[in-house]
Amino acid sequence: MFSKATQYGIRSVIYIWKQSLNGNRVGAKEVAEHVDAPEPFTAKILQDLVRKKIIGSMKGPTGGFYVGKEHEKFTLKDLVVAIDGTGLFEGCSLGLNQCSEVNPCPLHNEVKKVRDHIIHMLTAKSLKQLAEEVESGETVLSRFT
């Protein structure tokens, strides 16, 4: 359902949140190792997320990626849009330019129901809440756990 970039981004941000909950900042290498993602690709995704203010970063010996109070409002939908744009949430499934609520294509109404459900799923919890679930053991972040 998500691009590789978005999959790595979600896992990375949840890992960063988990570390930040414990007062730690982490480097791209550590993030990539813990979320089973290629380091250069992960670093690029993380820098993009810093530019889009989904996460923060500090330079220097005690630096790294982090999240804080200013990042608590972000949801999976914000992360998906930051990495892949809004394509998952809009546009005609058949590629028709004139498809709309007023002029629906044959799939419009069914796809709208699915999109509404996906939007609900991606906005129901914040990224921080997802990290707290990983931290408590309710969910897992690694397929190796």
Rank of each mutant, 00 (worst) to 15 (best):
S57H: 12
C92Y: 12
R25F: 14
Y66D: 04
F89Y: 15
A32M: 11
P40T: 04
A37F: 03
F89E: 06
F89C: 06
I55L: 06
F65D: 06
D36R: 10
K59H: 05
I45S: 09
V80C: 01
E33M: 10
T86A: 03
H71R: 10
P38K: 13
V26N: 03
D84K: 02
L96A: 03
G95L: 11
L88F: 14
L46M: 03
L88M: 14
L76Y: 01
F65L: 06
L46W: 05
K59W: 01
V26S: 03
H34P: 00
R51W: 03
T86Q: 06
I45A: 08
V26W: 00
K69C: 03
T75E: 12
M58Y: 11
L94E: 10
A28C: 02
Q47I: 08
V35A: 05
T75C: 12
K52H: 01
F89M: 07
K69N: 11
I45R: 06
A82Y: 02
D36N: 14
V81H: 00
G68I: 09
C92G: 11
K77H: 14
T75Y: 12
V50W: 09
V26C: 06
Q98L: 08
I83C: 09
V35Y: 06
V35M: 07
L94W: 05
E72M: 10
E70V: 09
G68R: 04
T62C: 05
L96N: 00
